Structures are given as C-alpha cells and as structure tokens.
Deep mutational scan, measured.
Amino acid sequence: VTTYKLVINGKTLKGETTTKAVDAETAEKAFKQYANDNGVDGVWTYDDATKTFTVTEMV
C-alpha cells in the first residue's frame, strides 16, 4: 500500500489531499471521484516519481 497525493488547482477549490491505495490506478479512481464530488473538472497529470496526481481546471 502506497500513499498518493492529489494537488487540486481548481477555479474555486485549491488544495491537497492524500489517499492510500494498492496502485496508482486505484488512487486515480478515488481522486477522480473526490474531484467529481467537489465539482472539479480539469486536466489530469501524474508524476510517478513523487506519486502525485494534479488536476488543473482551465479558466
């Protein structure tokens, strides 16, 4: 189990959260659900070296 981080660069919501998951795919599903629940829709990137997902909403 690995800890993954999500950085949110939203128009109205900004911040970070973490989740523990067995792999990046599982973490991504959890983060996308979290973003969807919070009304964040944007471009996703993932950095495997730092285990960090970033979602950026276009203005």
Rank of each mutant, 00 (worst) to 15 (best):
A21C: 06
I8K: 01
K11G: 07
V1M: 13
L13S: 06
T2H: 15
V59T: 13
V55Y: 02
D37M: 11
K14I: 09
A49K: 11
G10T: 15
T3A: 06
K32T: 04
V43A: 09
A35Y: 03
K29R: 13
N9S: 10
D48M: 11
G39S: 07
K29V: 07
N9L: 14
K51C: 06
A27C: 02
T12G: 09
E28S: 08
V1Q: 13
F53I: 02
T17V: 15
D47H: 06
E25V: 11
A49F: 09
F53V: 01
D47A: 04
F53M: 02
V40M: 06
T17G: 04
Q33C: 06
V55S: 02
A27D: 00
G10M: 15
E16S: 12
V43L: 13
D37S: 11
N38S: 08
E28Q: 15
Q33P: 02
N9P: 03
E57Q: 13
V59W: 13
T52E: 04
T3C: 10
T52N: 02
T54R: 05
E16T: 14
G15W: 15
T26P: 02
E16N: 06
L6H: 00
K5R: 11
E57A: 08
T54K: 05
D37R: 11
K20H: 14
E28G: 10
K14Q: 09
N9T: 08
K5H: 10
K20F: 15
A24Q: 12
G39A: 07
V55Q: 01
G39C: 07
I8F: 09
T18P: 02
K32W: 06
K14E: 05
N36S: 11
V43M: 10
V40W: 09
N36F: 14
T56H: 08
G42W: 05
A30L: 15
K14A: 07
G10D: 03
D23I: 03
Y34P: 00
E25R: 11
M58W: 11
T17Q: 10
A24F: 14
E25C: 10
V7P: 00
E28H: 15
V55P: 00
L13R: 06
G39L: 06
T54P: 00
V22H: 09
T45Q: 09
T54N: 04
E57N: 05
Q33G: 05
V55T: 02
Y34G: 01
G42S: 02
T18L: 08
Y4F: 12
V1T: 15
F31R: 00
W44F: 04
N36E: 11
D41K: 13
G15A: 13
E25F: 15
G15T: 15
T50Q: 07
K29L: 12
T50R: 06
G15I: 15
K5Y: 13
D37N: 14
T52G: 02
